[in-house]
């Protein structure tokens, strides 16, 4: 049994220590907004926050999480999250949408650290999130939109 604190609730999950956090969240806790795309930290679809910092849950064994606070796409809150998700919808960023949970998680994390990211800042923060539909033009524009919205 491993104890995981996800979105403010402590869950006891019956999994091996080497189980990636991703599968514990999806299969055992039943939160499926966090997606599987590669399993090797190449695509970013599985991004969650561990104590507020973005982490690829597919390469993070549950044994490494301890009593850290895990936050998934289902529970992100705050003005950055609201601004990013509003911008995502207004720009119609998603196509297939499968990678977008991870994209949103990374974008929100960026804006929490950097209120006014440049294109280069966006490249460095977001390039770990693959989008096979290549919605990148809109991801960039929506992050700038969200940053502007946060200024007001």
């Amino acid at each position: 049994m491993v104890s995981l604190k996800v979105n403010g609730t402590t869950h006891s999950v019956d999994v091996d220590d080497d189980t990636p956090l991703l599968w514990a969240i999806r299969d055992n806790i039943g939160l499926t907004g966090t997606k599987f795309g590669c399993g090797v930290a190449q695509c970013g679809a599985c991004t969650v926050y561990v104590d507020g910092q973005p982490v690829r849950s597919c390469v993070t064994p549950v044994s490494a999480v301890g009593d850290s606070e895990i936050t998934t796409i289902e529970a992100i809150t705050g003005k950055e999250a609201e601004a990013v998700q509003a911008a995502w919808t207004a720009r119609d960023v998603p196509q297939c949408g499968y990678c977008q949970s991870g994209q949103v998680m990374s974008a929100v994390a960026l804006l929490k650290e950097n209120k006014k990211p440049t294109d280069r800042d966006i490249d460095l923060a977001m390039n770990g999130n693959l989008c096979r539909c290549a919605t990148y033009v809109r991801i960039r524009a929506a992050i700038h939109d969200a940053a502007r919205a946060l200024e007001i």
Partner: peptide, 17 residues
């Protein structure tokens, strides 16, 4: 506007997986 943007930006869209 796209009918699926809202859910897809919030992890709510349901896929097979």
């Amino acid at each position: 506007k796209r009918l699926d943007s809202y859910d897809k930006s919030r992890g709510k869209a349901q896929f097979t997986i």
